[in-house]
Each structure stands twice: as C-alpha cells, then as structure tokens.
Amino acid sequence: MRSGCFPRCVLFDLDGTLLDSAPDMAATVNRMRAARGAPPMPLAELRPHVSKGARAMSAAAFPELGGEVPAEMIQEFLAVYGEELGRHGNAFDGIEAMLSALEADGARWGIVTNKPEYLARNLMSSLGWEQRSGVLIGGDTLAERKPHPLPLLHAAEAMGFAVADCVYVGDDERDILAARAAGMRSLVALWGYRLQHDDPLTWQADAMAATPADLLDPDAWP
C-alpha cells in the first residue's frame, strides 16, 4: 500500500467509473424499443450491461436476437445515443470531490475508455472536464482497445508518466486485464456496472473501492 499522497497519475474508465451513463443508455434502447412497438426496458435491467458496450446493451434490450446483434442495429444505437448523450446521466456521487482531491495533491488524471472517442469527447465540456483531463483515449483512438494494454501504455506516455507511476481505475474485468497486461497498478470501482455472475475478487486487481468517497483517503490507493 502507498501512504501519504495520491498516485502521481490516475487513469480512469468512463462509463460505470466516472460517469453514471446508464440513464442515457436506457433512454437510447427505449427509443429503439418504442420504434419496434416494444414497451420500455426498466433501467435496473439494463444497468448491469452498460460497461459491456453497445452490442451487449442491444442484446440485452432485444433478447429475441439471441445475442446476434446486426451491425446496422449497432449503428442505430450509436446514432440514437449520440442524441441522448449527457441528457440524463451525471458523474457518480463523490467523483467531483475525489478528482478535486487528486488535483489538490498535484496528481494528474486522464480517461481511457472503450466508448468511441467522438462520443466521449462530446461529454467532456458538459461535465467540465475538458481542460482538467490530461488525456482522452477512446475505443477507436488506437489500433487496439481494452483489454489490450496499448491504450493504457499510450495514455501514460502521452501524459509523460512511467507506467509505475500510474493507477488505472475501472469497473469491468477488461479494465483490470488491460492494466495487468500493461504492468500498471489497478483498482476496481465497485460502484460501477456488473453482471450478477461477475466476481471482482477473481480479477486480481491491486485494490478495490466501494465508493468514490473511499478514494479521498490516499491509503486506499494501491
């Protein structure tokens, strides 16, 4: 465990880690369902799938597809989501205080997400993070995406930090896999989105936190 100060560089996943985007996602799939004459899907049913991406959310919203989601439905999802982006979701409670604590300690932070970069970038100004985040890597920014380590390695290099000086925070197993492959310390955001069978204890992260407020304690960080 570290003691006394925060990591010098913290990289975050976006959906389910910094941002409670499930309400935006629910509005998206329910517009798609309404267009097909289906009733709304309860937010609670969609929430566990949000960190899995557009394909997983579409599969959850239309179980009759048996998981076989056509490419045109993914494009429809992204188009509708672009219109709902930032209209319903917000940063999780405690995120702003935690980011401010990092900044006050002289740490820097950035975002590495599998969300398409243009969608992530469109959110930044509305959240007030455009100037605060040191880097933004989307799922289509580079040739690889998480769980490949390249996005994390690229983000650390772009911010001028050694991998050993960075911690990656995410709510999905692929976040932890990416960090481990990059040789970067990792922390599971337990407040995020998980399927019922997901067991973060098996992901072998360096630390876990139940709430963003827990991360106001420097000793909670790996």
Rank of each mutant, 00 (worst) to 15 (best):
Met1Asp: 11
Arg2Leu: 03
Ser3Ile: 12
Ser3Val: 14
Cys5Tyr: 07
Cys9Gly: 05
Val10Arg: 02
Leu14His: 04
Leu14Cys: 06
Asp15Pro: 07
Asp15Ser: 02
Thr17Asp: 04
Leu18Ala: 13
Leu18Met: 01
Asp20Glu: 08
Asp20Lys: 05
Asp20Val: 00
Asp24Leu: 09
Met25Thr: 09
Ala26Pro: 01
Ala26Ser: 08
Thr28Ile: 00
Thr28Trp: 11
Arg31Gln: 15
Arg31Gly: 12
Arg33Ile: 07
Arg33Trp: 06
Ala34Thr: 10
Ala34Gly: 10
Ala34Met: 05
Leu46Ala: 05
Leu46Phe: 02
Arg47Glu: 12
Pro48Asn: 08
Pro48Leu: 11
Val50Pro: 09
Val50Ile: 15
Val50Gly: 06
Val50Gln: 08
Arg55Gly: 14
Arg55Gln: 15
Ala56His: 08
Ser58Gly: 09
Ala59Met: 13
Ala60Trp: 02
Ala60Asn: 05
Ala60Val: 11
Ala61Gly: 09
Glu64His: 11
Glu64Gly: 11
Gly66Asp: 12
Glu72His: 14
Met73Tyr: 08
Ile74Pro: 12
Gln75His: 11
Leu78Trp: 00
Ala79Gln: 14
Ala79Val: 15
Val80Gln: 10
Glu84Val: 11
Gly86Glu: 14
Gly89Ile: 13
Ala91Gly: 11
Gly94Trp: 04
Ala97Val: 12
Met98Tyr: 08
Leu99Ala: 11
Leu99Val: 11
Glu103Asp: 14
Asp105Tyr: 05
Ala107Ser: 15
Ala107Gly: 14
Arg108Lys: 06
Arg108Asn: 10
Val112Phe: 05
Asn114Trp: 07
Pro116Ser: 01
Ala120His: 01
Asn122Val: 00
Leu123Gln: 12
Ser125His: 13
Ser125Trp: 09
Gly128Asn: 10
Trp129His: 10
Trp129Val: 07
Glu130Gly: 12
Leu136Met: 11
Leu136Pro: 03
Asp140Phe: 12
Ala143Ile: 15
Glu144Cys: 08
Arg145Pro: 04
Pro149Trp: 07
Pro151Phe: 03
Pro151Met: 10
Pro151Trp: 05
Pro151Thr: 04
Leu152Gln: 02
Leu153Pro: 06
Leu153Trp: 01
Ala156Phe: 02
Met159Tyr: 02
Gly160Ala: 07
Val163Ser: 02
Ala164Tyr: 05
Val167Gly: 01
Val167Thr: 00
Tyr168Gly: 03
Tyr168Lys: 02
Val169Asn: 06
Asp171Ala: 09
Asp172Arg: 06
Glu173Cys: 12
Asp175Glu: 03
Asp175Arg: 00
Ala179Phe: 00
Arg180Cys: 04
Ala181Val: 03
Ala182Ser: 03
Met184Asp: 02
Ser186Pro: 03
Ala189Gly: 01
Gly192Gln: 00
His197Asn: 13
Asp198Trp: 06
Asp198Met: 08
Asp199Ser: 13
Leu201Arg: 09
Thr202Pro: 02
Gln204Ala: 07
Ala205Met: 04
Met208Gln: 10
Pro212Gly: 11
Leu216Arg: 07
Asp217Ile: 10
Asp219Ser: 13
Asp219Met: 08
Ala220Asn: 03
Pro222Lys: 02
